[in-house]
């Protein structure tokens, strides 16, 4: 699978979100890339996704790496992705609610590896 460039709009073909649209935000390594829907527009949250589960479309967005959701929504409008896939734009209230929710519990959860390392340090 060719590695996807930042900003390519692709469709998720596997999993419960298959069939919905997302755009590449940041490459992670050979098999994984960071992808976001954003959640309110297409239902795919900002998550790490396997390249194999994505199918690129020809549409490309001009966004910098690790762009925020607002920039992506603007780029969607410019590349008229909204009309092509007839997506529904979230209202301002939903955007605010989403923002406060994200600040309440940050995305980064402590993975099992980190908690394990912490335990070994305490033992020393």
């Amino acid at each position: 699978m060719v590695s996807l460039a930042v900003g390519t709009v692709c469709m998720k073909v596997a999993g419960r979100e298959s069939g919905s649209i997302c755009c590449v935000v940041k490459p992670i390594d050979k098999t994984f890339i960071m992808v976001t829907g954003p959640k309110l527009v297409t239902g795919i949250k900002r998550r790490r996704c396997n390249i194999e589960h994505l199918e690129p479309t020809e549409i490309k967005l001009e966004i910098k790496e690790d762009a925020t959701d607002e920039e992506i929504i603007e780029a969607y409008k410019k590349a008229n992705v909204i009309t092509k896939f007839n997506l529904k734009l979230p209202s301002a209230g939903e955007m605010k609610a989403e923002k406060t929710k994200v600040q309440a519990n940050p995305e980064k959860r402590e993975t099992r590896k980190e908690s394990k390392d912490k335990k070994t340090e305490e033992k020393k």
Partner: peptide, 23 residues
Amino acid sequence: RPYGGYLCSSCTRELFREKARGV
């Protein structure tokens, strides 16, 4: 999954791949 109990997983993948290519 969409088409969960109707199509097998590989068939849904092909279906959505063609849909993405057709855009």
